[in-house]
Nucleic acid binder design. Structure first.
Length: 511
RNA sequence: GGUCCGUUCGUCUAGGGGUUAGGACACCAGAUUUUCAUUCUGGUAACACGGGUUCGAUUCCCGUACGGACUACCA
């Protein structure tokens, strides 16, 4: 087997979509599995679509999820430059080679002429309106025009493109690692533009030339490239590189969670989940799209989730670290069908990875929130809060949302609990409880429990019956972390003061 | 429209000529937690349809339907 060299080749036309991250991930896993090389190439041959900041964004995103680049933009390497705009001159020479060998030709057609041709074919009932073997001779190109005229146009500096001369009647076969053999008839492929009139190559040429020059062994990319893969095979043949041609693997698409179609930013916005790895600010509109990172997703959770969208190890194990993914990954186990993006499953992974953290690590997530509110809190208290909350959180921010009760006394109370559970038993219990725990200087989870039980048994009340009311009195809400632990964390004084406040302000609705 | 690709529980998927069609998420129920959540146990739920081939097809073949991608001097 030849050296594994794979590339992730995004175009810097905006933020990196989550589907792109998955493509990068699969490339990376293959590279690492076989001790190969992961290359990042920036495909910026369309100057109109260039978005400033996009390249930097891609680099940052990959770094955040833990996909390391061995070679390429931002890293360098033996085949530099890795930005296609900086390789412009290279492509020209291969396009020329194609012209010289009769596999490509100059075309001078204007946009209007092309439109006209398509209109004409359409009204003639042609099923596909292509610039191809059937139509090329009626167009303005070096195949139809006299040699002299072509020369004259070239010398006069008339704008031109170079098109591939796709053979008329040929079956083009390729083996896709995921889909098996794919056969396409050459009549279905049009004479694709290889070099644009601005002197830049199109994707097709640049891609094939670079993959060859960079000795790429496997092209792992989205399914949207499958229809043009035969064209690329043709290019490898015409350039004489069929023996160096990489193996292809076309990945199924990520689909929207509901309905049909591929996942788009619109869907993400509509359903309220992120689609970009990290927050992206559109430079033209200043619109901000919150990323997975800022939403609170852990990179290891995102990676684990993404890896399983279209791939699985064939076992029942679902939690995989990056090294484990590298070990288990094979292209053969990538599925063929598109996968709907299920944000709930992503959240489940997140929850799992969050719970695997120690209280100390969780506290590190909590402190920034406290700092933002100017709240001082000891390490021990923060860790205790995390202990109380750790089984209840999906995102780090939940630590703060649910942890606020430890720092702020309630001023409003859950009315349902008030009407159902705030009764004379509760009032009697809490009045006695306040006196009971007041004598303790230290309130621990255990002592709180003991004190409460002492009071209720003295009063002949079942502890369970007043617990809801106690929670509501202490936190204002109807649900939350372990109550005894909550009291321990807020301490005697605060517990007493909150109970007194509730006792003074709450009225019994249903005696 | 044309070409190509696809189709197992609601979702991600395992499986593969004879299985009680397995797991996970979600959902529901019970237990535990003297509260909510957690946890545990259990449950509902799938082979798109029609023809073949075969003793037997969810699995192989062919159609149909449905879905998707592509059909630019975008990638």
């Amino acid at each position: 087997m030849r050296d594994v060299r794979v590339r992730f080749a995004p175009s810097p036309s905006g933020a990196l979509h989550i589907g792109g991250v998955r493509t990068a991930l699969y490339n990376y896993l293959l590279a690492r599995k076989y001790g190969g090389t992961m290359i990042l190439r920036i495909e910026d041959t369309d100057q109109n679509r260039y978005v400033p900041g996009a390249e930097e964004y891609i680099l940052k995103s990959l770094a955040w999820v833990g996909i390391q680049i061995d070679e390429g933009v931002g890293k360098g390497g033996p085949y530099a430059p890795y930005r296609q705009s900086e390789r412009k001159s290279i492509y020209r020479q291969y396009a020329q080679q194609l012209v010289d060998t009769g596999n490509a030709y100059y075309a001078f057609d204007t946009e209007q002429e092309l439109d006209l041709m398509r209109e004409r074919l359409k009204s003639a009932g042609d099923s596909n309106q292509q610039y191809s073997s059937g139509t090329r001779l009626q167009m303005n190109n070096s195949l139809a025009l006299t040699e002299e005229l072509v020369k004259k146009k070239l010398e006069a500096g008339d704008p031109f493109v170079i098109r591939l001369k796709v053979p008329a009647n040929q079956e083009i076969k390729l083996t896709d690692l995921i889909r098996g053999e794919v056969v396409v008839h050459s009549s279905q492929i049009d004479d694709k533009v290889l070099m644009k009139s601005d002197g830049m190559p199109t994707y097709h040429l640049a891609n094939v030339v670079d993959d060859y020059l960079m000795k790429i062994s496997h092209v792992i990319r989205g399914e949207e490239w499958l229809p043009s893969a035969p064209l690329h095979v043709l290019l490898y043949q015409f350039l004489g590189w069929q023996n160096e041609m990489p193996q292809f693997a076309h990945l199924p698409l990520l689909l929207k969670p509901d309905g049909n179609g591929k996942l788009s930013k619109r869907d993400a916005d509509r359903m309220g989940f992120p689609i970009f790895p990290i927050t992206w600010t559109d430079p033209s509109t200043n619109e901000i799209a919150k990323g997975f990172k800022e939403t609170g997703f852990l990179p290891e959770a995102l990676i684990n989730f993404l890896a399983f969208l279209g791939w699985n190890p064939g076992t029942e194990k679902e939690i995989f670290s990056m090294p484990e993914l590298i070990d288990a990954f094979t292209i053969e186990r990538i599925g063929k069908a598109g996968a709907k993006f299920d944000i709930q499953k992503a959240q489940w992974f997140n929850q799992h990875y969050l719970r695997a953290k120690t209280d100390q690590e969780l506290a590190d997530y909590l402190f920034p929130f406290l700092k933002a509110e100017n709240i001082t809190c000891s390490q021990a208290k923060a860790e205790k809060i995390c202990l109380a909350l750790r089984d209840r959180i999906t995102f780090p921010a939940d630590l703060w949302e649910q942890g606020m009760i430890f720092f702020f006394s309630p001023t409003t109370f859950d009315q349902q609990v008030v009407s159902k559970k705030w009764n004379s038993d509760a009032v009697k219990t809490f009045s006695a409880f306040v006196e009971e725990i007041r004598s303790n200087s230290m309130l621990t989870s255990d002592s709180a429990k003991a004190s409460l039980e002492k009071v209720t048994s003295g009063l002949g009340i079942k502890t369970g019956q007043i617990l809801q009311a106690l929670r509501m009195a202490l936190t204002g809400g109807a649900s939350g972390p372990d109550l005894m632990l909550t009291m321990e964390i807020i301490g005697v004084e605060e517990t007493v003061s909150r109970l007194k406040y509730a006792l003074a302000n709450l009225k019994i609705v249903n005696p």
